[in-house]
Protein backbone atom coordinates (compact mmCIF):
# COMPACT_ATOMS: atom_id res chain seq x y z
CA UNK A 1 0.00 0.00 0.00
CA UNK A 2 2.75 2.45 -0.93
CA UNK A 3 1.44 5.12 -3.18
CA UNK A 4 1.48 8.87 -3.00
CA UNK A 5 -1.39 10.73 -4.53
CA UNK A 6 -0.75 14.44 -3.97
CA UNK A 7 -4.26 15.56 -4.86
CA UNK A 8 -5.90 12.98 -2.62
CA UNK A 9 -3.57 13.67 0.30
CA UNK A 10 -3.89 17.45 0.06
CA UNK A 11 -7.65 17.45 -0.22
CA UNK A 12 -7.93 14.82 2.54
CA UNK A 13 -6.10 17.10 4.96
CA UNK A 14 -8.85 19.70 4.53
CA UNK A 15 -11.81 17.38 4.00
CA UNK A 16 -11.22 15.29 7.10
CA UNK A 17 -11.79 18.28 9.34
CA UNK A 18 -14.95 19.29 7.50
CA UNK A 19 -16.29 15.76 7.72
CA UNK A 20 -15.39 15.43 11.40
CA UNK A 21 -17.06 18.74 12.26
CA UNK A 22 -20.16 17.73 10.35
CA UNK A 23 -20.23 14.36 12.09
CA UNK A 24 -20.15 16.01 15.51
CA UNK A 25 -22.93 18.39 14.45
CA UNK A 26 -25.02 15.47 13.22
CA UNK A 27 -24.45 13.55 16.45
CA UNK A 28 -25.63 16.39 18.68
CA UNK A 29 -28.54 17.27 16.38
CA UNK A 30 -29.86 13.74 16.73
CA UNK A 31 -31.93 14.22 19.83
CA UNK A 32 -34.87 16.03 18.25
CA UNK A 33 -33.83 16.35 14.63
CA UNK A 34 -32.57 13.98 11.91
CA UNK A 35 -29.16 12.70 12.90
CA UNK A 36 -27.90 10.78 15.88
CA UNK A 37 -25.10 8.67 17.23
CA UNK A 38 -25.21 5.94 14.62
CA UNK A 39 -25.07 8.20 11.58
CA UNK A 40 -22.58 10.53 13.26
CA UNK A 41 -20.37 7.57 14.05
CA UNK A 42 -20.50 6.36 10.47
CA UNK A 43 -19.52 9.82 9.19
CA UNK A 44 -16.58 9.94 11.60
CA UNK A 45 -15.56 6.48 10.52
CA UNK A 46 -15.71 7.57 6.89
CA UNK A 47 -13.38 10.48 7.68
CA UNK A 48 -10.93 8.12 9.38
CA UNK A 49 -11.13 5.69 6.49
CA UNK A 50 -10.38 8.53 4.09
CA UNK A 51 -7.24 9.17 6.12
CA UNK A 52 -6.29 5.51 5.92
CA UNK A 53 -6.81 5.53 2.15
CA UNK A 54 -4.87 8.72 1.54
CA UNK A 55 -1.98 7.84 3.83
CA UNK A 56 -1.08 4.30 4.72
CA UNK A 57 -2.19 2.34 7.77
CA UNK A 58 1.14 2.65 9.58
CA UNK A 59 1.34 6.45 9.30
CA UNK A 60 -2.22 6.99 10.48
CA UNK A 61 -1.72 4.57 13.32
CA UNK A 62 1.21 6.67 14.53
CA UNK A 63 -0.95 9.79 14.48
CA UNK A 64 -3.98 8.18 16.08
CA UNK A 65 -2.60 5.45 18.36
CA UNK A 66 -5.97 4.20 19.53
CA UNK A 67 -7.22 0.65 19.83
CA UNK A 68 -10.60 0.95 18.19
CA UNK A 69 -11.83 -2.23 19.85
CA UNK A 70 -11.61 -0.42 23.18
CA UNK A 71 -13.44 2.60 21.78
CA UNK A 72 -16.27 0.31 20.70
CA UNK A 73 -16.41 -1.47 24.05
CA UNK A 74 -16.25 1.85 25.92
CA UNK A 75 -19.13 3.13 23.80
CA UNK A 76 -21.35 0.18 24.63
CA UNK A 77 -20.35 0.55 28.28
CA UNK A 78 -21.35 4.24 28.33
CA UNK A 79 -24.72 3.45 26.74
CA UNK A 80 -25.31 0.68 29.23
CA UNK A 81 -24.34 2.89 32.15
CA UNK A 82 -26.88 5.56 31.17
CA UNK A 83 -29.49 2.81 31.29
CA UNK A 84 -28.19 1.59 34.63
CA UNK A 85 -28.28 5.16 35.96
CA UNK A 86 -32.04 5.25 35.60
CA UNK A 87 -32.13 1.79 37.14
CA UNK A 88 -30.23 3.02 40.19
CA UNK A 89 -32.63 5.93 40.63
CA UNK A 90 -35.59 3.60 40.62
CA UNK A 91 -36.97 4.46 37.17
CA UNK A 92 -37.51 1.87 34.43
CA UNK A 93 -34.36 0.89 32.56
CA UNK A 94 -33.30 3.41 29.88
CA UNK A 95 -35.55 6.19 31.18
CA UNK A 96 -34.40 9.60 30.05
CA UNK A 97 -34.55 13.07 31.48
CA UNK A 98 -33.88 16.55 30.12
CA UNK A 99 -33.61 20.05 31.49
CA UNK A 100 -32.99 23.58 30.22
CA UNK A 101 -29.98 25.32 31.72
CA UNK A 102 -28.21 28.61 31.03
CA UNK A 103 -24.67 27.77 30.09
CA UNK A 104 -21.94 30.36 29.58
CA UNK A 105 -21.24 30.88 25.88
CA UNK A 106 -24.15 28.70 24.71
CA UNK A 107 -27.02 30.52 26.35
CA UNK A 108 -30.14 28.54 27.09
CA UNK A 109 -29.36 24.93 26.21
CA UNK A 110 -31.31 21.74 26.41
CA UNK A 111 -29.37 19.11 28.31
CA UNK A 112 -30.67 15.59 27.83
CA UNK A 113 -29.41 12.27 29.14
CA UNK A 114 -30.25 10.80 25.74
CA UNK A 115 -27.20 12.63 24.39
CA UNK A 116 -24.92 10.58 26.64
CA UNK A 117 -26.57 7.43 25.33
CA UNK A 118 -26.04 8.72 21.80
CA UNK A 119 -22.40 9.41 22.59
CA UNK A 120 -22.06 5.76 23.57
CA UNK A 121 -23.69 4.67 20.31
CA UNK A 122 -21.37 7.03 18.42
CA UNK A 123 -18.26 5.54 20.00
CA UNK A 124 -19.53 2.00 19.52
CA UNK A 125 -20.17 2.61 15.82
CA UNK A 126 -16.77 4.24 15.25
CA UNK A 127 -15.05 1.47 17.17
CA UNK A 128 -16.80 -1.43 15.43
CA UNK A 129 -16.55 0.01 11.94
CA UNK A 130 -12.87 0.80 12.26
CA UNK A 131 -12.11 -2.58 13.85
CA UNK A 132 -13.78 -4.40 11.00
CA UNK A 133 -12.13 -2.36 8.28
CA UNK A 134 -8.69 -2.44 9.87
CA UNK A 135 -8.86 -6.19 10.45
CA UNK A 136 -8.87 -6.55 6.67
CA UNK A 137 -6.79 -3.47 5.89
CA UNK A 138 -3.88 -4.23 8.23
CA UNK A 139 -3.11 -7.44 6.39
CA UNK A 140 -0.61 -6.89 3.65
Amino acid sequence: MKFTDVILQTSTKILVFIILTFSIYVMFAGHNNPGGGFIGGLITASALILLYIAFDVKTVHEIIPIDFKLIGAAGVLISLLTGIGSLALGYPFLSQAFAYRDLPLFGKTELATAVIFDLGVYMAVVGTTMTIILSIGEDE
Binding site: K69, L70, G72, A73, V76, L77, L80, L87, G90, F93
Partner: peptide, 22 residues
Amino acid sequence: MNNLVILPILLPLLTGILMFFI
Protein backbone atom coordinates in the same frame (compact mmCIF):
# COMPACT_ATOMS: atom_id res chain seq x y z
CA MET B 1 -42.88 -2.11 36.66
CA ASN B 2 -40.13 -4.32 37.95
CA ASN B 3 -36.55 -3.50 37.08
CA LEU B 4 -35.46 -6.98 38.08
CA VAL B 5 -36.60 -8.23 34.69
CA ILE B 6 -33.84 -6.40 32.81
CA LEU B 7 -31.02 -7.82 34.94
CA PRO B 8 -30.66 -11.25 33.26
CA ILE B 9 -30.08 -9.33 30.01
CA LEU B 10 -28.01 -6.52 31.44
CA LEU B 11 -25.60 -8.40 33.70
CA PRO B 12 -24.15 -10.78 31.10
CA LEU B 13 -23.79 -7.91 28.63
CA LEU B 14 -22.07 -5.75 31.22
CA THR B 15 -19.60 -8.47 32.24
CA GLY B 16 -19.03 -9.30 28.58
CA ILE B 17 -18.24 -5.69 27.70
CA LEU B 18 -15.99 -5.18 30.74
CA MET B 19 -13.98 -8.23 29.72
CA PHE B 20 -13.16 -6.55 26.41
CA PHE B 21 -10.94 -4.15 28.38
CA ILE B 22 -8.77 -6.93 29.79
